[in-house]
């Protein structure tokens, strides 16, 4: 799309991909091991994931007490 304004905008996502690469490089330098896949460090989880069932608490029932 041709730019229609003076000031640049709407390119925020462009920075995402270089950030991935930069983080991978930083990780490689810091640990001395080259990561070969994303997400880094998620081959084996170091924690017990929270249960996903039920995924959310029951909806509240007091909606009529909060009208305005």
């Amino acid at each position: 799309m041709p730019n229609t304004s003076e000031s640049p905008s709407g390119a925020g996502e462009l920075a995402v991909a270089p950030a991935f690469a930069a983080i991978a490089c930083a990780y490689a330098r810091a640990t001395g091991t080259m990561p070969t896949y994303f997400p880094i460090n998620h081959g084996k989880l170091s924690f017990e994931p929270l249960p996903v069932q039920p995924s959310t608490p029951q909806s509240p029932t007091d909606g009529l007490d909060h009208t305005f």
Partner: peptide
């Protein structure tokens, strides 16, 4: 509801 704001997700 009756002209006042409310959230139907939280009303049975």
């Amino acid at each position: 509801i009756n002209g006042k704001a409310f959230n139907p997700c939280s009303v049975q």
